[in-house]
C-alpha cells in the first residue's frame, strides 16, 4: 500500500475529489496547509506572501492504483502556472479499519 500526499490549489480541491470519486477512490482526508516552494512565495507589487494556502489531500491506496490516482490528480489540478503543487508517495505497511479491527484497506 502507498500513502499519497498531494498539495494542490484549494480551488481545485472539489474537482479533484469528484474526479477521484468517479474513478472509484472516494476515501481521502484533506487538511488546509500553508507552504512555499522554489519561488519562495509570491510577490504582488510591494507585497510579499511568504506562505501560500494549499490543500493537502492524503489517501492510502493499493500499489497498483498509484499511477491511476496520481495521473488523475495531476490532470485535474494542473493550471500550468507555478504553485500547482506537489505529490508525494510513501510506503504504508499496514492499514487497520477501526470499526472491524481488521488489517485490510
Amino acid at each position: 500500500m502507498k500513502m499519497i500526499r498531494a498539495f494542490i490549489r484549494p480551488e481545485k480541491e472539489q474537482e479533484v475529489v469528484q474526479a477521484l470519486e468517479g474513478a472509484g477512490f472516494p476515501s481521502l482526508t484533506k487538511m488546509p496547509v500553508f507552504g512555499r516552494g522554489k519561488q519562495k512565495g509570491l510577490q504582488v507589487g510591494p507585497v510579499h506572501y511568504d506562505e501560500l494556502p494549499k490543500t493537502l489531500i492524503m489517501m492510502v491506496i493499493n500499489d497498483k492504483d498509484v499511477k491511476k490516482v496520481t495521473d488523475l490528480m495531476m490532470e485535474k489540478s494542473r493550471t500550468g502556472f507555478v504553485g500547482d503543487g506537489k505529490i508525494f508517495i510513501s510506503p504504508v505497511e499496514t492499514t487497520y479499519t477501526v470499526r472491524t479491527g481488521e488489517a485490510v484497506l
Binding site: 492510502v60 510506503p91 504504508v92 499496514t94 492499514t95 487497520y96 479499519t97 477501526v98 470499526r99 479491527g101
Partner: peptide, 23 residues
C-alpha cells in the same frame, strides 16, 4: 498501540476511522 486505539475507538458504526502504519 494499534490494538488499544482500535479498542477505544470502536463503536461498530461506519466512520470509526482508519489506522495506517508506515516506516
Amino acid at each position: 498501540i494499534v490494538k488499544s486505539i482500535v479498542k477505544v475507538n470502536r463503536t461498530g458504526k461506519t466512520g470509526d476511522g482508519k489506522i495506517f502504519v508506515s516506516p
